[in-house]
Write a protein that binds this DNA or RNA. Structure first.
Lengths: 219, 219
DNA sequence: CGTCCCTTGTGAAACCATTCACAATCAACC
DNA sequence: GGTTGATTGTGAATGGTTTCACAAGGGACG
């Protein structure tokens, strides 16, 4: 299989969402054009992305919605239950815990940690907030696959180091810092400050940010 | 001035954060190398990024921390107060409202909207949740610069269309869909589902996602 | 004030993702 | 079963970002 770029993987998620909707409304087949329109990209891009993993379409017809949905779920590793732990029971942590829309895709929060003793012991929807001190032990016991880091910026790298040492290979970081992990650990960062400041830049500078192919500031 | 790419603007935010920290600990000068290390990129990248906006460093010495901090704040448009509105008072909306770490950079939430009449009228930290029906009028009255969209996926495009028609030029979207806006509107999307599914892909496929220059899955 | 060492700024090269363009293929219909 | 119209899959072209590599410049110190 060819190399798969990060942007491609991101788009697969978007395709999957669109396909799921289409499937629910009973559509049997989509063209790359329609799929692209709904996912916010181009038909050529859709075909390129999918062709990396195999040939799923029929020329002259398009892609079979249900089969492609299944295929993408398999490719993205969504066929299983992912065990997630949340480190940091502050505002962001609580919000993520409350949201949990991602349960539908198989991401289940199985443990919550905080270093504030006042929060430890609180019961969140049947789950007891655990002490930071138990982190390593509990990650192993609960067989956690993915850790969500929702601690203050200063504490984030420390948490990540411990979590990595405990064997976790997937990290989703909400702290507004660049974190360092070994090459065999997957790290994704959601940095709201960066997003807001990009908006600020765009607004302050007359939206002069260059986008690929002059598609200006669309997404 | 040359064209400024999206990734470059994002990195400026990161540089700014690092510089602020350095300034607070009394450091007077940084090399591109040190700045790069702390921001998670390369020295050459730092120099290229900064050189777009001018020459701020001294050869043989490095960059003056305080002066560069000010310069970046100016470039990013952080010298003023940005008036932000939050549309959607659900879990995510509430979390963002509670977080508000970004106040420090001048982003102030001045209004909250929801279409659920049960939420309308609630007082959030001195701010009354307003009805969705007032949206257009209130955006103009409050001179809102940036709207944060925190509504369900199905409702997001509708909200965006109204907000754009009301003259808002900056949108930060948390709904898990690709949104369409005219070229003169800046849109940034934070899609947690995509991030989680990218992690899932990486974990399920032995971290085989190609990153630029084989830097594998670091960030 | 000359030499040395360090670090910037930047043109050129390398690299990678996206877009183009078209041959190959399939269903449908007569 | 041939013809038509549509759409995929993909090699080549394009365009943009990152990295390289080095000349230019500046401070420090003798």
């Amino acid at each position: 299989m060819k190399k798969v770029s990060e942007p491609t993987v991101g788009r697969l998620s978007l395709y999957l969402r669109v396909l799921t909707e289409l499937g629910e409304s009973g559509v049997g087949t989509v063209s790359s054009e329609e799929l692209a329109r709904r996912a916010g990209t181009t038909a050529a891009q859709v075909r390129k992305d999918l062709s990396i993993f195999g040939t799923f379409g029929k020329r002259g017809l398009g892609y079979p919605v249900d089969a492609l949905t299944e295929e993408l779920r398999r490719i993205l590793g969504l066929g299983r239950r992912w065990r997630v732990a949340l480190v940091g029971a502050g505002r962001i942590g609580r919000a993520l815990f409350g949201y949990q829309d991602f349960r539908r895709q198989g991401f289940y929060i199985e443990a919550v940690f905080d270093r504030d003793e006042a929060k430890v012991g609180q019961e969140w929807n049947g789950l007891v907030v655990r002490s930071d001190a138990e982190l390593e032990k509990a990650l192993a016991e609960e067989e956690i696959d993915i850790v969500i880091v929702a601690v203050p910026a200063e504490a984030a790298q420390g948490v990540v180091d411990r979590v990595v040492r405990a064997g976790v290979r997937g990290i989703l970081n909400f702290a507004p810092v660049k974190l360092h992990v070994p090459p065999d650990v997957a790290l994704k960062t959601v940095n709201m400050a960066v997003e807001l400041e990009s908006l600020s830049y765009a607004l302050a500078n007359g939206l002069a940010v260059s986008r690929r192919r002059g598609r200006a500031n669309r997404e």
